[in-house]
Every structure is written in structure tokens, then in C-alpha cells.
């Protein structure tokens, strides 16, 4: 699998990042097999979080066995110094390791949170302290929120080394500022910040729970995923060809083999094919009933 420099961290990440939430849905033996599988296919960047059920615990054994082959990203939703320090300790314990390569502010949503994180007694103080103590090596941030908030975070966090945010052809086809993640990507490139793409495989939100109860969903994903080899490959190719460092895999373990296959086969996507995908999805989404032209 190809690798790309993760910003200026000095690490070359595989173009697919293993979203280890998938391990939460497997028994330990299956979780072990999945880690062996993704490593065998050349994935060297893993992402985990304490809120992913038992993912940290289930990743632990194989992570410890292969610690030197895995660049480990973890994250916290805590916004204060005390909270973040406690969560980092907890993650290190649950993972059973003494070092996390990349520690990220998880799911930044509001400007006020950014004030808390960057202020006195904020989470970033704990991040920086941990970096000095050698518990973590790099600081990152993840967000599904509006691009402007992420751009503000870049301005306000000088030592930010990676960003994780949505990137897919549906988002890329929208012009409004609320979907302008391309601007984030561009800015990150200028600043030497590594970029990790999420929601690459999103087909759309799940139907309402009235229509489809949560327990009846066929996949353990945040969103309804594309689920055929061809669609997964074109979505991977699209996301990877936007210039992201790495594309994060889906949450459901049933789809992992297809994502790995797409990542291994990745060989770029020309611009006319990228536009073709954007156009196709724009029409599928379009509220206009009869749109004859591209």
C-alpha cells in the first residue's frame, strides 16, 4: 500500500488509516485477526478513541505485539486540562502501551469549545505536557463541523500537526461555505499539517428510526455506507486523489476487506472521472425532478 508524509510529523502514513472502531463489533479472536489482516495489507496508521466501546481493549494485545509497526492515533472529547489528562491516562492503560503517537482533540463542534481547549486550564495544556513527558509525539484535531471552525483551529493552535475531517464527492459537489472542506485541505497543505479523511464512503444518513429502527440497520456505521466493491473503490479513489494524507476506513468490520482492496489498488483518479462521480451523486441527491444535463 502506498504511503504519504503525514504533514511534518516525519511519519509516512499508509493511504488508508484503520478506523479501529471496527474491532468493537468483534470478539477478541476476530479482533486479533482483523489487526493482522490490515497490517498484512500494508496499513501502518491506526485510529482509536475511548468512546468506541471496547475498541481500545480489543486492539491492545495485537498493538503491543506489533507496536513498532503501528502509528497510533487516539483522541479525547474532554475539553479541559484535568479531563484530557485523565482520559489520556485511561487510554494508555486500556491500550496497555506507554506511548501514543498522535493525540487528537476529538469532534470539535463549537467555537466556545475552541476557547476552552486553547485557554488556561484547557485540554491543550494536558496535550503539551504529555508531549514533554514523552507520552505522546504529535497533536491533532478531528471535526465534522463547519470548515470555518477548523480553519479557526488552525489559526489558534500553533502546534497542530494533523487534522481529520469529512471528504467525499457529495461534499465536494456543494459550493456553500458549510461544505468547503477543500479550503481546509488547501490551508493544511500550506501549513504542513497532515490530513485524514472521514466519511469517504458515506452514501447518506440512515433513514429515520421510525422508518428503520437502529437495531435493524445492516451496518454498524454512523451513516449508511456504499457497500459494493466498485462503489467503495471509486469513493476511496476520489478521497485519496483530493490530496489527503490518508483515508480512514469504515466502522463496520464486514466492509473492511473491500476498503483494504481499494486502498491497495489505488492508482490515482483523473479529474474528469472525479467530476463524473460528483455529477452522478449530485443528480442522485438533487431535489430537481428532471435534470437532463450534467
Amino acid at each position: 500500500m502506498k504511503t504519504r508524509p503525514l504533514g511534518e510529523t516525519g511519519h509516512d502514513s499508509s493511504i488508508m488509516t484503520f478506523g479501529t472502531i471496527a474491532l468493537n463489533w468483534l470478539e477478541q479472536e476476530g479482533a486479533d485477526q482483523m489487526v493482522e489482516l490490515v497490517l498484512d495489507r500494508g496499513v501502518n496508521h491506526f485510529d482509536v478513541a475511548p468512546m468506541y466501546g471496547d475498541a481500545e481493549l480489543k486492539l491492545g494485545p495485537k498493538l503491543r505485539q506489533h507496536r513498532d509497526d503501528i502509528f497510533l492515533g487516539c483522541k479525547t472529547q474532554e475539553r479541559t486540562y484535568e479531563g484530557a489528562k485523565r482520559k489520556l491516562e485511561q487510554s494508555l492503560n486500556r491500550l496497555g502501551v506507554d506511548h501514543i503517537d498522535l493525540y487528537q482533540v476529538h469532534g470539535l463542534e463549537y467555537e466556545e469549545e475552541l476557547d476552552t481547549i486553547t485557554g488556561d486550564g484547557g485540554a491543550l495544556e494536558a496535550f503539551r505536557e504529555a508531549k514533554e513527558e514523552g507520552l505522546i509525539s504529535h497533536i491533532g484535531l478531528t471535526s465534522h463541523s463547519e470548515p470555518q471552525l477548523i480553519l479557526d483551529a488552525i489559526d489558534r493552535i500553533d502546534d497542530l500537526e494533523t487534522l481529520m475531517f469529512p471528504m467525499n464527492p457529495v461534499v465536494a459537489g456543494k459550493d456553500d461555505p458549510d461544505h468547503d472542506y477543500a479550503a481546509v485541505l488547501e490551508r493544511a497543505e500550506e501549513e504542513g499539517i497532515g490530513t485524514l479523511g472521514i466519511k469517504a464512503f458515506a452514501k447518506g444518513p440512515w433513514p429515520s428510526t421510525d422508518e428503520l429502527p437502529e437495531g435493524d440497520r445492516p451496518y454498524a456505521n454512523w451513516y449508511e455506507p456504499v457497500d459494493t466493491p466498485a462503489e467503495i473503490a471509486e469513493r476511496f479513489d476520489f478521497a485519496a486523489s483530493q490530496g489527503l494524507t490518508s483515508v480512514v476506513s469504515m466502522g463496520d468490520p464486514k466492509l473492511m476487506a473491500m476498503v483494504l482492496d481499494a486502498a491497495q489498488r489505488y492508482d490515482g483518479m483523473d479529474e474528469a472521472a472525479q467530476r463524473s462521480l460528483i455529477e452522478r451523486l449530485r443528480h442522485e441527491e438533487s431535489p430537481v425532478p428532471e435534470q437532463l444535463h450534467h
Partner: peptide
């Protein structure tokens, strides 16, 4: 502009 053209 498009290759291929998506006829949805």
C-alpha cells in the same frame, strides 16, 4: 469535462 458521463 466528464469521463465517463453518469447517466443516472
Amino acid at each position: 469535462l466528464l469521463d465517463p458521463v453518469p447517466w443516472t
